[in-house]
Simulated scan of single mutants.
Amino acid sequence: MIEKPATKRNILIVDDHPINVDSYKTLLSNIDSNSNADFQLAFDCKEAYHIINGMKNNQLLIDFAFIDINLPPYEDKKIFSGSDLALIIKDFFPKCKIIIISMHKEPLWVNQIYKSINPHGFIAKSDINYKSFPLIFESIEKSETYYSSSIKESQRVMIQKNINWDDNDSKILQFLSEGIKTIQLPDFVPLSLSSIEKRKANIKKQLMLNSGSDKEMIDIAKKLGLL
Rank of each mutant, 00 (worst) to 15 (best):
W165M: 01
D166S: 05
K161Y: 01
E141V: 02
F188C: 07
S192C: 06
I151Q: 06
T145S: 10
E106P: 00
I117D: 01
W165R: 03
S150L: 12
D187S: 12
K77W: 05
V189I: 15
Q184W: 11
N118G: 04
S170H: 11
D167Y: 14
Q112M: 15
K77H: 13
D127Y: 05
I88L: 05
S102I: 05
P186T: 07
Y130T: 11
N118H: 15
K97W: 08
P94F: 03
S139Y: 09
S83C: 03
S143P: 00
S170A: 14
I172C: 12
Q112E: 13
W165P: 01
K181E: 15
L85A: 05
I123H: 08
Q160M: 05
F188A: 01
I88R: 07
Y114T: 04
F188D: 03
L191F: 06
I101A: 02
N168T: 09
S139N: 14
K181I: 06
I88P: 03
Y147P: 04
S170E: 06
Q174A: 09
S170F: 10
E153F: 06
G82T: 08
Q112K: 14
L135H: 11
F80W: 07
Y130V: 09
M158G: 12
D127P: 03
S83F: 07
F92N: 13
K131N: 14
I79G: 01
S83N: 08
I117K: 02
K115V: 02
F133E: 01
K131D: 11
M158A: 14
D127V: 01
C96K: 07
Q184C: 01
D167K: 12
S177M: 09
A86C: 10
D91V: 00
P119I: 07
I101Y: 02
S192T: 15
D91Y: 04
I151A: 04
Q174V: 00
P107K: 09
S116V: 05
I98T: 04
S177H: 12
I172F: 01
